[in-house]
Design a protein around this nucleic acid. Structure first.
Lengths: 265, 265
DNA sequence: AAATGCTTTGCATATTATGCAAAGTTTTGT
DNA sequence: ACAAAACTTTGCATAATATGCAAAGCATTT
């Protein structure tokens, strides 16, 4: 056991102990000693001693009667502390210039404000500037890629008011939506499509000369905490096989909190 | 090192390593190696090796540029997994959207964390979004409805540290509390008032434009294991005869562990 | 009541964590 | 811009300690 390519300079017993803790976290319910030992491929006595330490520190609780092991209050407190520092807006904002540089597109970070999708950070690429887009700008819900992602990843009640407003305006102005039905049913279908794809994209139909695509930064309730948007002029930039699409989704996935079950290596 | 009355049968290196993790969790921000070493009274080399293991397991993240250490995604996942095992969180989470819909207000579920009242679930209503409120956000103890319920329904020892801190801050900043005395006696009286009413409410005094009310979810010892909070913009929503108040209290009563028989596994 | 499965503890050995000190790296001061 | 200080990271010898086996409790089952 000489070479650990990446896992250098750690404490072996601690590595093993943490494997036990994540094994317990992966299970949905309390687990018995032997179950955990089997999961980790370790002798029961070893796991038992690890659990004793976790128990003393409060990371693990032992059920009074059954003797099974479960996660304890210290695990909750540590997790909440970690969550507390997870500031989506700032974390995303720090990384936004990198995304803009990698893709060569203008990158936007939006949150849901009182008037709908609101731009809070924006990183322009070399080529173009959408002059009308400034900080605090509110974007449309139904006709922007950003808005459509919020539509798909926020509760209906939240978006209801703006939804109705934009539908009514579309009706009175006579301007129909090209790619969606002009009623609530059409909006539902749109949201479903966005959820299935994991992102939204619009071509120059609504904002002539501009193409955009957007993806959500999700919290662990599966709701959109923020939306990241890429804007360009070239329609090929938002094609399904465009590299920028993949980069954007990776970017968002890295910022999203993966709930229990999602286990990256 | 002969007698450890209660801490029997553990792994010493693991005990020490976990002390480092909780030291990191107790800090509000990312910490440097030497800070942690000082906190724990350990040599830096030791702490560094522990952190290397935590890093490999994902419990700790290292900031790209500063090199400081912070809690990582595995900490979040483990904590959320621990939260999900408490039945009351799940039951509350299932019912929370209904409460938000019925009242038309934003509904919050909070538990007590390292930094005080901490948001673990929230359901936004149509009308408003408090942008600064997210999962894992820590709320003030004395000036939020949520915090005041914890103050009233948790042992004094639990809230003591935060109580002193907020009182001291109020004293130095010169900002007096409007509705409570600026000392421990005033805090005691406040807690008594909350207990008598069974809930707490604040108007826009502390958070301009926002009104909130909160009630406890009690365990079998009569302590708050969680607090449910409703937030709105209309002061009439938190009036004594407002329907939302009754709905919230019914909601909490249903979640509270009533008599014997509600024995979790 | 005997037996099975599970959890917990003793103990000798070898693995491995430890602390010191030096090398490497970034930040601060002049 | 250079020097100095502070901090982070790594090597190494030694002593501490984690490990695995096996036996002893303990509860539930047949």
């Amino acid at each position: 056991m000489a070479d650990r390519p990446d896992g250098t300079g750690g404490i072996q017993s601690l590595d093993q102990a943490l494997r036990v803790l994540v094994a317990l976290a992966r299970r949905k319910r309390a687990a018995s000693l032997s179950e955990l030992a089997r999961d980790c491929g370790m002798p029961t006595s070893k796991v038992h001693r690890y659990l004793a330490s976790f128990l003393n520190a409060g990371f693990v609780r032992q059920a009074e009667r059954s003797g099974k092991y479960d996660l304890g209050p210290a695990s909750i407190e540590t997790g909440l502390s970690a969550l507390n520092r997870h500031d989506f807006v700032n974390r995303a904002a720090d990384a936004l210039p990198g995304l803009a540089a990698d893709t060569g597109l203008t990158a936007l970070l939006c949150v849901w404000g009182n008037f709908g999708p609101t731009v809070v950070r924006w990183e322009r690429a070399a080529s173009l500037v959408a002059a009308s887009l400034g900080l605090g700008t509110a974007l449309p819900l139904l006709t922007s890629a950003t808005g459509r992602v919020f539509l798909a990843y926020l509760p209906e009640a939240v978006t209801a008011a703006l939804r109705r407003k934009e539908l009514a305006e579309a009706a009175t102005s006579g301007r129909e939506f090209d790619d969606i039905g002009p009623d609530e049913a059409g909006v539902h279908a749109l949201a479903e499509t966005v959820r299935a794809a994991g992102h939204a994209a619009v071509d120059g139909r609504y904002i002539p000369g501009l193409v955009a695509m957007a993806a959500p930064v999700l919290d662990w309730q599966g709701q959109a905490q923020a939306v990241v948007t890429l804007i360009g002029t070239d329609p090929r930039a938002i094609a399904k096989d465009a590299p920028a699409l993949g980069q954007m989704k990776v970017f968002c996935a890295a910022l999203s909190i993966t709930g229990p079950g999602g286990a990256p290596a």
